[in-house]
């Protein structure tokens, strides 16, 4: 049963467009650059995608509730910076990572409160939080950059477990956990219900505040993990290190077929979305395209996908209405 619905989603359902564009993209990439299909490039793509994927994992839950979190990028940077500073100061690795996680969770918690209790529009509250977090990251780094972290920490980013890079394994574990959480638990169901219709959820006795807080906490947590892994991978920390990821994180979720209206989509889509975006960047790098084009490409991709979502919905609604009219006429 479970496999069936997953397969159905991939082949015919929500993720159809995402899967199709992934294949088309891979096809084009192969034509454009023969080195694209090499094993080493494959591993590179996976590793690059894994950080993006970790960062956008929690955001998927938030977008499913019909809200957004624009602070993921800078809160990840903040967490990475705190972790690096503490490592340099000589704290044990576990403690450093714990502190970063705590900061990520705090950011998520505040976001959740602002959106859930104060009912501020989520994009305003989290955009403000984005500013605050990047400002704090700047303070933590004192405007500078840190190089050279302990090797037992950097393994998290550059190490391998068998043939697979550690970040990829981490991302895979997170994906599985998130899938179980969102598809197989009462909490996950409530996340979807709030996204479908927050008012109806309230009128059904769903505790929407707790669910929303949960989603934002997840988002803060995965943001922190992403920040830590990224710091380990770079073997350095810089307050602007996630700048390039800012829009990509949102784009990965949206390109993966999760609707900004909430309720539709899921983690599986985000996996595809993250891989698509990474391939786009990868192929641009291989082709030697100026990296300044990336923002433009991501912007266009996100606009196109959101438009497609709304357009498909409108076409669907129109078709349903016409069907209805015909059946009424016949009756």
């Amino acid at each position: 049963m479970k496999k069936n619905t997953m397969l159905h989603d991939l082949v015919k359902g929500r993720y159809f467009f995402s899967v199709m564009s992934l294949f088309v993209l891979i096809g084009i990439s192969c034509l454009m650059s023969p080195s694209f299909l090499s094993l080493s490039n494959f591993i590179t793509i996976l590793r690059q995608a894994s950080i993006l994927l970790i960062l956008s994992m929690g955001l998927t839950a938030v977008v499913l509730t019909g809200n957004i979190d624009l602070s993921v990028g800078s809160s990840a940077a903040l967490c990475g910076c705190v972790c690096a500073q503490m490592l340099v100061a000589g704290f044990p690795v576990i403690l450093c990572m714990g502190a970063s996680l705590l900061i990520g969770l705090t950011v998520g918690f505040i976001n959740g409160l602002l959106v859930g209790i104060l009912k501020l529009p989520s994009f305003i509250a989290t955009y403000g939080m984005n500013m605050v977090a990047s400002g704090l990251a700047m303070i933590v780094m004192n405007g500078g950059v840190i190089y050279g972290l302990p090797t037992n920490f950097t393994t998290l980013g550059v190490g391998y477990l068998g043939p697979l890079p550690v970040p990829v394994i981490l991302a895979a574990i997170l994906v599985v956990c998130m899938m179980i959480l969102l598809q197989k638990t009462v909490f996950g169901r409530n996340v979807y219900m709030i996204g479908y219709n927050a008012n109806a959820a309230d009128y059904s006795g769903v505790n929407s505040l707790r669910t929303l807080l949960g989603a934002y906490l997840l988002c803060g947590m995965t943001g922190a993990i992403g920040g830590i892994v990224m710091t380990a991978r770079l073997n350095a920390a810089d307050f602007g290190m996630t700048e390039a990821y800012g829009l990509q994180i949102v784009a990965a979720v949206v390109v993966g077929g999760t609707s900004l209206l909430g309720g539709e989509g899921g983690v599986l889509g985000t996996v595809i979305g993250a891989i698509i975006l990474t391939i786009i960047v990868n192929i641009m790098n291989i082709m030697g395209v100026n990296s300044n084009w990336q923002g433009m490409v991501h912007g266009i991709v996100i606009l196109f996908v959101v438009w497609l979502d709304v357009f498909a919905r409108r076409v669907g609604a129109g078709r349903a209405l016409r069907k209805q009219r015909e059946s009424v006429k016949r009756a």
Partner: peptide, 29 residues
Amino acid sequence: IVGKGLLPVFIVTLGTQNIFKSAALLLCG
């Protein structure tokens, strides 16, 4: 895009934000 496409304003302008920023970077290298 907002008026004819009926998309949420914040996501549209977030997208164009990156497009314009990228255009600025390209103009001046």
